[in-house]
């Protein structure tokens, strides 16, 4: 595991990706700080981190960091070295993810200095500042884990970048999509059906078996339709509830408002765990094809 971690760190800083990523991410975060804190004389780092540029740093730059992490191994056939060595797939995935987390942590060290710098010009609420920074860090790790999973699925780095970018944008604007879809129960029913299809599609992808996903879908669709015709009230406000339950932004907002919410921490940790688990399963599953 340590060998893989060291190798990844070396690769990022031998190939410039690491430096370019850090330079760009720190530059846009600093730009937001300049606009929010220096120009308008605010001392709140929380408002800075929830601004436009920090979101760009996550949605646009993170895909470039994660794109190669697994897809390149597959393309160069170096996965044959890793997977035939006496190291488990779990350790390979964790080693690689830790290297991504380390690079992201380097970026956060710079961000962590900002409240200290600003404090020399006036009063800074350190507790709420560092809560917000912790929230940004957790959300970044969550995005890294999703980007990691997407890189595991594709041999092509360009596809990995594009799919990651689109997924991140959807995640950031998830609650806005809820408003777009509307609050009618019919829309809620359709959304629930779409989710059933997606879940069964994932099941099919993971199991390579048609029978189980179809059976699950028939049962799920039956229950959903039954509820829709017999007890429509179940769908009241379903879309909004569901989307905000899934949205990382609603969790991030609790950090921004300065409260360290246990639910939000658990949400991000589960998010990371789920996508790393899916990555491990995807690598293992490839052996069976």
């Amino acid at each position: 595991m340590l060998a893989i971690y060291k190798k990844e760190m070396k690769t990022y800083f031998n190939s410039m990706i690491g430096y370019v990523y850090l330079a760009l991410a720190v530059a846009v975060l600093s730009l937001q700080t300049y606009m929010n804190n220096l120009l308008s004389g605010s001392s709140s780092i929380a408002n800075t981190l929830s601004g436009f540029f920090p979101m760009i740093a996550l949605a646009v730059f993170v895909p470039f960091l994660t794109m190669r992490i697994m897809s390149e191994e597959k393309k160069q056939r170096t996965d044959q070295l890793l997977l035939t060595s006496p190291v488990s797939v779990e350790k390979i995935v964790i080693g690689k993810f830790l290297s991504l987390a380390t690079i992201f942590a380097m970026e956060m060290i710079v961000v962590a200095l900002l409240p200290v710098i600003i404090s020399s010009y006036g009063k800074v609420n350190f507790v709420s500042s560092y809560t917000a920074i912790a929230g940004y860090f957790l959300m970044g790790l969550a995005f890294l884990s999703l980007g990691f999973f997407i890189s595991t699925c594709s041999e092509n780095q360009i596809i990995a970048v594009i799919v990651s970018f689109v997924s991140f944008v959807i995640l950031v604007y998830l609650t806005s999509f809820a408003a777009l879809i509307g609050s009618s129960n019919r829309a809620a029913f359709i959304v629930a059906m779409v989710i059933a299809v997606v879940v069964c599609g994932l099941l099919y992808y993971m199991l390579n078996n048609m029978v189980i996903p179809i059976a699950v879908f028939v049962v799920a669709a039956g229950i959903l339709a039954f509820l829709f015709y017999k007890k429509e009230s179940v769908y009241d406000g379903f879309v909004l509830k569901l989307f905000s339950a899934l949205s990382p932004m609603s969790r991030f907002d609790t950090f921004i408002s300065g409260t360290l919410d246990l639910d939000a921490v658990v949400y991000f940790i589960s998010f990371i765990f789920v996508f790393l688990f899916l990555s491990v399963q995807t690598v293992k599953k490839r052996r069976w094809q």
Partner: peptide, 14 residues
């Protein structure tokens, strides 16, 4: 096991 696959699994940048 020591394994040499058909295409040697090498990292070109090392």
């Amino acid at each position: 096991i020591g394994y040499l696959p058909e295409i040697p699994p090498l990292y070109n940048d090392m």
